[in-house]
């Protein structure tokens, strides 16, 4: 009897959500992508920091990645329980704005330290990074300095699919913004360098670390992880003279937010030094506002692209369909 009771309780405990939240406190619901909220992401520190001052309970609800996140919020529509959505990027902003689900942040003038000027009334940037090809310094000696050199080299690369992954889409727009009408030719020339196209970043990076290719599409900040967390300085990002495509990740307040005031306070917290200081060593991206204490050791050694490439949010949406067509035509044979 006892035994079966214990196991029933255990199953019940494992299967029901932890509903034992603080009694009277208001709950701020933040929809974000999974790796932000995971044990190894910024989520836990951000939750602790904000809860210390807000007198509220911060609750994360997660989706796989930025695109899945927006997809979910659009599905939920006006009935969404989200107060804040955190983790969209510039390529999703136009779609997000079109949905009419988000409202102005009203933060006033914030001094961002990003390679692009920012004055969007709805979306608050919280971190940014450059896409780049990452390689192993001990293995690749002849490092290409642009896409043409990469295409002409015998180097093997792994990229992500633009249809299912954020970096994949970033690369598509990177090549398009650097070469315009010549993008299709670059893809044709790159075809014999591409070992494979993976559904997401995790698969691509995992295969690269296993040695399946010389380079992988990732971020300029990726080597910082290996340097800081693993004391391994063999990984580096290759600087390209065309410039590097920029990814800016943003948060926004949901128009139908039940906890509107808390949502406003949270967005203000997002731009605070406390939040920003958490970003580099948990999300492995650059903070949108460099904290007064500076960046952690290891970030200084990263390549700093001479030129930032980026399409304005509205334009990216129009261009990506054309760019995807070129990409499919060049690699599809």
């Amino acid at each position: 009897m006892m035994k079966s009771h214990v196991s029933t309780l255990m199953i019940a405990g494992l299967l029901t959500a932890t509903s034992a939240v603080a009694e009277e406190k208001p709950v701020l619901t933040v929809h974000t992508y999974d790796s932000f909220a995971s044990e190894w992401g910024p989520g836990p520190a951000v939750e602790k920091g904000f809860e210390a001052t807000c007198g509220c309970d911060l609750k994360y609800v997660t989706a796989g990645d930025g695109a899945a996140l927006l997809s979910r919020v659009i599905m939920e529509g006006g009935r969404t329980k989200a107060d804040v959505v955190l983790g969209l990027d510039m390529n999703l902003m136009a779609q997000a704005a079109e949905s009419g689900l988000f409202t102005d942040h009203g933060l006033g003038d914030v001094k961002y330290t990003m390679p692009v000027a920012w004055d969007d009334p709805v979306f608050v940037p919280f971190d940014w990074g450059y896409f780049a090809f990452v390689y192993d310094k001990t293995k690749v000696k002849d490092v290409p300095t642009d896409f043409k050199a990469l295409a002409a080299s015998p180097l093997k690369i792994i990229i992500e699919d633009p249809r299912s992954s954020t970096p994949g889409l970033g690369l598509l727009l990177w090549v398009k913004s650097a070469y315009g009408a010549g993008a299709a030719q670059i893809w044709k020339d790159l075809a014999d360098n591409i070992v494979t196209v993976t559904p997401g970043w995790s698969e691509a990076y995992g295969l690269f670390l296993k040695g399946e290719a010389d380079m992988v599409l990732s971020y300029t900040t990726s080597p910082a992880y290996h340097l800081i967390a693993e004391k391994d300085d063999t990984k580096a990002a290759a600087p390209f003279t065309e410039g590097h495509y920029l990814q800016v990740e943003v948060a926004a307040k949901v128009a139908s937010a039940r906890e509107g005031d808390l949502a406003d306070r949270f967005l203000a917290y997002v731009t605070s030094p406390e939040f920003q200081a958490v970003i580099p060593e948990t999300n492995w991206m650059y903070p949108a506002i460099t904290p007064a204490s500076g960046l952690p050791d290891g970030f200084q050694s990263l390549v700093a692209p001479a030129k930032a490439l980026v399409y304005p949010a509205g334009e990216a949406k129009k261009i990506r369909d054309e760019a995807l067509g070129e990409w499919q035509a060049a690699l599809g044979r």
Binding site: V195, T196, P199, E203, L331
Partner: peptide, 9 residues
């Protein structure tokens, strides 16, 4: 299929 398929083919 995607990871081992080698591309949009």
């Amino acid at each position: 299929a995607l990871t081992l398929g080698g591309g949009p083919r």
